[in-house]
Simulated scan of single mutants.
Amino acid sequence: MQTVELIATATFGLESVVADEVKNLGYTDMTVENGKVTFRADLAAIAKANLWLRTADRVRIKIGEFKATTFDELFEQTKALPWSDWIPVDGAFPVEGKSVKSTLFSVSDCQAIVKKAIVESLKRTYKTDWFEESGPLYKVEVALLKDIVTLTIDSSGSGLHKRGYREHIGAAPLKETMAAALILLSRWKPDRVFMDPFCGSGTLPIEAALIGHNIAPGMNREFASENWPIIPRQIWRDARAETHDLADYDRELEIIGTDIDDEMLKVARRNAGEAGVEDSIHFQRLDMRDMSSKRKYGYLICNPPYGERLLDKREIVKLYQDMGKAFGKLDTWSYYVLTSDEEFEKHFGREASKKRKLYNGNIKVDYYQFFGPRPPRPKTETIVTLDQA
């Protein structure tokens, strides 16, 4: 089967998480760089990666990479690439672009030149001077970084954070991909209780349920590459069938989402229903300050309000102080908090075990991780034989 080079794009700080996911899918020939994980695989990986990657933003096919400091170099080297291997005669191929620290800094000019070069390349194969672009979508990206040009085709269509379940969102939504990353970074296991005391529209609890049941995040949505002639239909049929075979719908989960806003809880329940995990999550109206649990060794993961998002500074400080007191009651739990407040630990009243720098949209944030004690190992019976006696 044809080998391709794929790029799983990643939010800054999540590259290693995406790389772990790629590796878990069975693809080990990879390179990890800022904002992306590049790996070699077969055509089936296009379907598999789109369906299963929880934390990547998109899956792109790498068509070529070269150095260019003039528009002539950009045109000629783009034209020389095998575009007709991917784009059929009726394919729609809009071009988008970006340029960082490159001689060719005009993105609009680079887009126009790449578009013209692809047209000239396709003319040689299809022997026509006009392309209607009425067929499947092949969105091309020209990305320039320090004069290195990378040309890709987007196989995903809508970003991978669009799982298809979140028709309703709150005032400051957390992307599904980021929510999944926070859970994977915590090393939460489905046999432990999971709680989000600021659940809003339910993204964190829903992503936890999808992970707990091993439900592929892309199971209920479509992808641009499903309509590409180069990928046999059977590849997509087999990949989708596998998502159903591997899902563990019967696994018992204890996932709790609480919030003080009744309307948001209604939204969360509808979203959980759309995701097919409403029976696995208990949503409840509850002030964070009043939370408690008889369960030990649970995981509390949350994305509370922070100044850039919803509340003013005084409210934020009081909230974080109250969080420190409330979370402290769950002294055998591990808790994980995403916030942009650099003084969070001071207000919370405890130093984090670990801190990770991330970006929530365009906001620089830290993921504060407070590790609870390890649960005791289950006792094993000692069997005494007659010889030992």
Rank of each mutant, 00 (worst) to 15 (best):
W130F: 15
I231T: 03
G361M: 00
T38L: 12
E65T: 13
G324N: 11
A352F: 11
F283K: 05
E308P: 11
T332G: 01
K79P: 02
H282S: 12
T385S: 15
P82K: 07
E274F: 14
R240K: 13
D290W: 05
E278I: 10
Y336P: 00
M1N: 13
G349Q: 03
V22E: 12
G164M: 03
N50E: 05
A216D: 02
Y126D: 08
F348P: 01
Y27L: 08
K357A: 07
S158R: 04
Q388T: 13
N24F: 10
F131Q: 07
Y359G: 00
W86K: 03
E96T: 15
T258W: 06
P136C: 06
L51D: 06
F75G: 08
Y126T: 14
L358P: 04
T128D: 03
M195Q: 15
G328I: 05
P378F: 13
S334I: 02
M323E: 09
V100L: 10
K379S: 14
S158N: 15
C110G: 11
V32A: 06
S353H: 09
N360S: 05
M288W: 14
D238N: 14
L185Q: 12
R192F: 13
S334P: 02
Y306M: 06
G157N: 07
A179H: 02
G200H: 10
F39M: 07
D261H: 07
G212T: 01
P304I: 10
D287C: 11
T125E: 15
V193L: 12
D262C: 02
